[in-house]
């Protein structure tokens, strides 16, 4: 029915993707000469993937896995992504200011903040034309 917007995601997809992040993580740190640290971060990814895989009784885990693919799940997903973006932007702004206080350029955080705002402006422009 029209209340379903996408094909349901098989329950193993998200846990596998999350756990798979461990591979490039470990390789990147291994190339950088810190394989032990890479193993730690890779372990974090695998652990999160396992939690997603075995936490079937939790509604939150089911939402994270994309198991409940209906309009309410999509609404919750959008709201969660909005909260995530807000936290990230506030954190970036704080780090940018901290860089300034330390006498650094803060260019990395400035570029990320500009990217975030440019994305918001572009998204609003496109969505406004479509609706």
């Amino acid at each position: 029915m029209y209340t379903k917007n996408r094909r349901p995601v098989p329950p193993w997809v998200v846990p596998v993707l999350v756990a798979a992040v461990a591979v490039p993580t470990f390789v990147a740190f291994w190339i950088g000469g810190q394989p032990q640290l890479g193993a730690v971060w890779a372990g974090v990814s695998v652990a999160f993937g396992l939690v997603l895989a075995v936490g079937g009784r939790s509604d939150t885990i089911r939402l994270l896995r994309g198991a409940d693919d209906d309009e309410r799940a999509l609404t919750l997903e959008y709201q969660a992504m909005t909260a995530t973006a807000l936290v990230l932007v506030v954190a970036l702004a704080g780090l940018f200011l901290a860089e300034g206080i330390r006498g650094e350029s803060g260019v990395v955080y400035a570029v990320l903040l500009l990217l975030a705002e440019a994305t918001r402006v572009a998204a609003l422009a496109v969505l406004n034309r479509r609706s």
Partner: peptide, 26 residues
Amino acid sequence: AMEVSRQTINAIETERYTPSLPLAIA
């Protein structure tokens, strides 16, 4: 029957979620 999750029906019944117009009509 509505092709939504049981949690969505529960959320509507407990008035924690307002359904979309298509779902409300359905």
